[in-house]
Write a protein that binds this DNA or RNA. Structure first.
Lengths: 198, 198
DNA sequence: ATTAGGTTTGACTATTTGGTCAAACCAATT
DNA sequence: AATTGGTTTGACCAAATAGTCAAACCTAAT
């Protein structure tokens, strides 16, 4: 069904690269064509317009990220390792998908939100439900789960979204910074676990 | 010294609005002129080029935000209210300056980082120093301060940087969301305090 | 009233950019 | 060899856009 021809794949990879780097407004169709090693006319042959090409890629990101954000299966296992695993997965997904691009382009075109809303509509806030059960069972503190949702996202996404600024703020070069992010994943999970623990 | 004429102020306000909304690549000099109620030629009369105008505004943001990020005065008072006050100030500063724009444009032009680096060079990581004293005095846990720095920034900045996404993720309309952010400020501070407390 | 100096703008330019199209290309089929 | 149908592209177009400039405008000093 969703078979992609080889040139289509090359184009999509090129487009991802250019859109991520330059944003929608800054991206140039010619640059995408160059990156894919084809002519601009061919690029338009495969994907009618810049907007269509971008939408395709944007939707791809959304539908890839949303499931990660609600991956809470409520078996009886300990919640602490679950939090740790969840945040590790979140960090990985975000490091691969450009949250900055998503934030960048979300309000440019309000219809961009549709994909997110439909992807999200099915599942009823998985973490909130999970947390409520833990709370009722007396396993965690009885607090508002919303700041926890915000915080998990924030701790995972922000280090990638504002990389350059953080490098400067923490006096690290990008190499040191990336190395540090490995340790950080666990430290960030610790913060959330402490916020939940009785 | 830094007296700004009335049209200059109008232009800068207009430019802030347009650059924040559209980013550098998406911003149009004509839109800025319209917003300021003058002709495009006049706009160029006051600020030679788009790049110069943007640089001016960008530097303004950086020099306004950086001091807030290192506002740790180490008198003998309790550290917990200090953390709370600090994060409140940070949230306010970030809600007024567009962290998303900063993140957006930081790597477009590497020289954008200079302003940040020079503004930062003076002060030797105020929080790290403060935290070390607290830690040696046995007032807080003895842990790596870096995730705390990251977390404070993340918790304060992310809710503004990814507003639209979070609205959708938490099923709130923008009005509800803004209302919630008031409570959130304290909840976020709680998370940091818990991470520091023994 | 005239002058002088800063301010404002409509009209214009050069360049960039998304998008089109007819012609060329190429591989498979007859 | 000829035909067919999908693919590729150089050449081109129309619109948008940053930036320029000479002329008009305005105000305060002479």
């Amino acid at each position: 069904m969703d078979e992609l021809t080889e040139p289509e794949q090359r184009i999509l990879a090129a487009a991802r690269k250019v859109f991520e780097r330059d944003g929608y407004a800054g991206a140039r169709m010619q640059h995408i064509a160059d990156e894919a090693g084809i002519s601009k006319a061919s690029l338009h042959y495969y994907f009618r317009s810049k907007e269509k090409l971008f939408q395709r890629i944007f939707d791809e990101y959304i539908t890839r990220i949303v499931p990660v954000f609600s991956a809470w299966n409520d078996d009886g296992d300990d919640w602490q390792p679950k939090v740790r695993t969840f945040m590790k997965g979140m960090m990985k997904a975000i490091s691969e998908s450009p949250m900055l691009l998503i934030a960048r382009e979300f309000d440019r075109d309000p219809s961009k939100m549709e994909a997110l809303l439909t992807a999200r509509r099915k599942k009823p806030n998985a973490f909130a439900a999970y947390f409520e059960r833990l709370s009722k069972a007396g396993l965690v503190r009885d607090i508002d789960p919303r700041p926890l949702i915000m915080a998990m996202q924030a701790l995972c996404a922000y280090p990638y979204m504002n990389k350059a600024f953080l490098c400067a703020a923490m006096r690290m070069d990008p190499k040191q910074y990336n190395a540090y992010l490995d340790q950080y994943t666990d430290q960030a999970a610790d913060i959330i676990i402490r916020a939940m623990k009785k």
